[in-house]
Design a protein around this nucleic acid. Structure first.
Lengths: 365, 365
DNA sequence: TTGAAAGCGCTAACAG
DNA sequence: CTGTTAGCGCTTTCAA
């Protein structure tokens, strides 16, 4: 009991070589399948390796080669269906290319993101995919990029960081959605969004310098209102974090406004769920009293009554493309950094309709 | 352009030592904070490290120490909300203890699981959490365990593998759920479940040798029926993989049986969603025509109409406990392997009620 | 309190 | 075709 029990795959290439009666180099060549080895030697090595249950030591290999065959993923929250699906696409492509994926949740906390990036650098990941938690303290991303680490930004941009970005056209998707509601006759359209930089963007003077998903979606919202000559009402724009109960509370506040909106635009599926819960709490009906529309085609969107109209993002493809970009950059196929804008899909279901004809100033019962 | 751009954190401890005018050993001691270093030396080293933006090379450290500070997670499908939440709990505790988490999806494919375990061993992870995709070809888990790698089984057992297991009492939870339906008057109770080992277990003669979540749930289902003197009907037990459309199709088949069940028990939230979709397709109402109950308290369970009654698993705690067990085992606090059975919670909502009084042999319209 | 030196297991010239 | 050799960057005795 005096050794550590952590002697998994205790056989080294040295042991294999000795058992096969060859040198370490020959054993290495036979095992990793490079260089030239005679058939008999290779067979003896492979047999010895099987016999000893040899596992190559990936750590030693990484140390020597400088590559870890590992990709780091820094996501906001793996519990959010959007990120879970994106990661699924990402890991599939990564694995198909021989890369493992290390995962880190930031919970939208820039500090957590910073330390995750640092740890990943120390681990010598070969590339990094990040959904940046903020615009502001991004020095760590610049530094990592400057140090030569391939980075892909997923879902969100960072100003001035010249790397590949995979996202959708959030401004356009939001604008078109709001235009759609306006065409139906709505003029009192509220928006429930995540916290990301909202505090900044709501008060920002120069919106078109904006980045970050929420900021873009807010901009699209405002553009549509502007074009229709509808005044922007700050009290119609609420921010919740990405947790269901927070969304529900904010939504309820929205629905209890004296001048209640006739439509609510939720920027993700958790917020949408919060809106639906709040509508029930308050006793309002969709779409007769309030129309609802949201980003992301959650698996339940077609099961709730009425079906939720959504802007579907190509979640898997966003993950897959991110992985492909990272892999090709790691392989040195260095194209100039590009912003990849994927297409969204509008899925019209039953949760939107014309606004109620008569304004009701008070809530039912 | 002749060097690789992959020179992140190019400064080594050697560079830091030289810049600080000390030896590598002293620099190492100062940086990692062990041994004894004079105050001035430490200060010079730290300053030099900051100046050079030094990042310790974790790969080299792992090579030397034999520890990677990394935990491997082999899960069936990160897109499934259950696993996503479990992983959230797991990564939180792992990170709090200084471990990174490497993730691998198996998609319920034993081959993928096997190669994932192999890769993790090669990467020299310090511990492994696994939701085994099958009972059968588990040689790789035995081998890894025998080689001294700490392993925790999550959600599912494997016969004879003497390691910590974190799960709920699936037999009991299923039995009580079915008993509840029987108490309401149901006698025609169907079950929609995942593929895991169902093919085996449905035809197995010796069910109580069973493992695997689905098998246990099936057993609980059968025990409840037996106790009530209700015959087991194979046509009432359908298996779908964990994808929504497959679940929907199987559920529809169930609902189109001539002798339609009056209640459906779904073993996870995706299957539950499939049942709800199928009910709508077929034009049946919950709970008047059919009662529905499922495992896992999905975030939408309270938003659909009527609210879905569920058996809630302590998802975060399952992940957190798995991580705690792994960490303490890695630290050598070796308790005997234990099976940790966590409590479920029955959340009664509106999706269950008494069966319809009159049997309808044909479907509406 | 510090430095020299050895070595973790592997890969990759290079020489044979 | 095969073996020798020299490290990758770090930690850790062991002497000084």
């Amino acid at each position: 009991m005096s050794y550590s029990p952590r002697e998994q795959g205790v056989a080294t290439i040295h042991d294999v070589a000795r058992a096969a009666g060859v040198s370490r180099s020959t054993a290495a060549r036979a095992l990793a399948g490079y260089g030239i080895v005679s058939k008999e030697a290779a067979e003896r090595v492979l047999a010895a390796a099987a016999e000893l249950d040899y596992r190559a030591n990936g750590v030693a290999r990484s140390m020597k080669t400088g590559r870890s065959n590992t990709l780091g993923a820094v996501v906001a929250d793996i519990e959010n269906a959007f990120f879970a699906r994106v990661m699924r696409g990402f890991t599939d492509v990564a694995r198909a290319n021989g890369f493992q994926v290390i995962l880190s949740n930031t919970d939208e906390d820039p500090g957590a993101e910073q330390s995750a990036v640092r740890v990943f650098q120390e681990r010598r990941v070969d590339g990094l995919v990040v959904t940046p938690a903020s615009l502001d303290p991004t020095g760590h991303l610049y530094a990592a990029h400057a140090a030569g680490l391939p980075i892909v930004l997923l879902d969100r941009r960072v100003p001035g960081l010249d790397v590949d970005v995979v996202q959708i056209d959030n401004v356009k998707a939001a604008r078109e959605t709001i235009e759609h509601l306006i065409a139906l006759g709505h003029r009192k359209i509220a928006m429930l969004t995540g916290v990301t930089e909202m505090e900044v963007s709501v008060h920002a003077t120069n919106l078109d310098s904006g980045v970050s998903t929420s900021k873009d979606r807010l901009q699209g919202y405002r553009e549509a209102l502007d074009a229709a000559g509808i005044d922007y009402r700050p009290d119609y724009v609420r921010t919740a974090d990405f947790h269901l109960m927070a969304a529900r509370e904010e939504a309820e506040r929205l629905l209890r406004l004296r001048d209640r909106p006739t439509a609510v635009f939720a920027t993700d599926s958790t917020n949408a769920l919060g809106v639906l819960l709040a509508l029930r709490d308050v006793g309002l009906h969709v779409p007769q009293d309030v129309s609802v529309v949201a980003f992301d085609d959650a698996d339940w969107a077609d099961v709730v009554e009425p079906g939720l109209s959504v802007i579907a993002q190509p979640v898997h493809e966003m993950g897959r493309l991110s992985a492909r970009l990272l892999v090709s950059r790691i392989r040195g196929e260095a194209l100039p950094p590009t912003q990849h804008v994927l297409e969204t899909q509008w899925l019209a279901r039953e949760s939107i309709g014309p606004p109620p004809h008569r304004r009701r100033a008070v809530l039912p019962a």
